[in-house]
Design a protein around this nucleic acid. Structure first.
Lengths: 120, 120
DNA sequence: CTGTGTGCAAACTCTTTGCATAAGT
DNA sequence: ACTTATGCAAAGAGTTTGCACACAG
């Protein structure tokens, strides 16, 4: 994977600080605002490449959009429906009991917990 | 909501037996096979109406498709990635401990657990 | 005859793909 | 030059919407 201008710009936005949750469109907007010049398609491709490289993870909460998460470790999410926003829940603290064992011929790949929040 | 032919055909397929998980496209196919005559758009509209009526619930696991679940009670899901198939996990049996409390100004609407399975 | 509600063609949104172009050897 | 990889326009997949038509009162 070559360190092109587009990829560097996105990497910088994604990994510069703390963990982030972004959608392709949001990141595209940020990149443009930061002066970079790339298309939304390139953002998607880059996000998928970063994902394959293990730098990023998808979070499915919304059906309409895919969210990408720079935190690839074991954790879960609060999802604020109104604002379409994600907040990490550290995986260490959470314990899930009473799950049936995986059906024959399958094995568990991951357990995702999504706590859906409603603004009050 | 009028009991039109289209709605009756779909209701019959959805609620005739045990609980089901369907996508719009799958249900459309079944309806056509059963001799009904309706468009995919109508299936979507009808599913959304059933949902508003509280007869159905959406399950978001895939990002590409929306799954509809005739089981509206408290429960969770196994998701078989390869086959794009859902299996219910009764909510009674599952206990989740250690979740942080909801951020100020928000309240928990629902907690969804998805156990992602990989065929072996 | 009038008004409410229905079903579907067409539109829309998000994401992926095919290909001309660019970069490296 | 030749090969591999890149970025984006255009296509694809899933879902929603606007509107002509049907049905009930």
């Amino acid at each position: 994977m070559r360190p092109t201008q587009q990829r560097l710009a996105l990497a910088k936005l994604l990994f510069a600080g703390h963990d982030r949750h972004v959608t392709a469109e949001l990141l595209h907007g940020e990149a443009l605002s930061a002066g970079a010049s790339l298309s939304l398609a390139t953002v998607y491709n880059t996000l998928n490449q970063f994902m394959q490289a293990g730098l990023l993870r998808q979070v499915i909460v919304d059906g309409a959009r895919i969210h990408f998460d720079t935190n690839t470790g074991d954790h879960h999410h609060f999802y604020l429906e109104g604002e379409d926003r994600l907040i990490d829940i550290p995986g260490r603290d959470v314990r899930i009991d009473g799950l049936p064992k995986a059906p024959a011929g399958t094995e568990i790949q991951r357990v995702d917990v999504v706590v859906r929040l409603k603004g009050r």
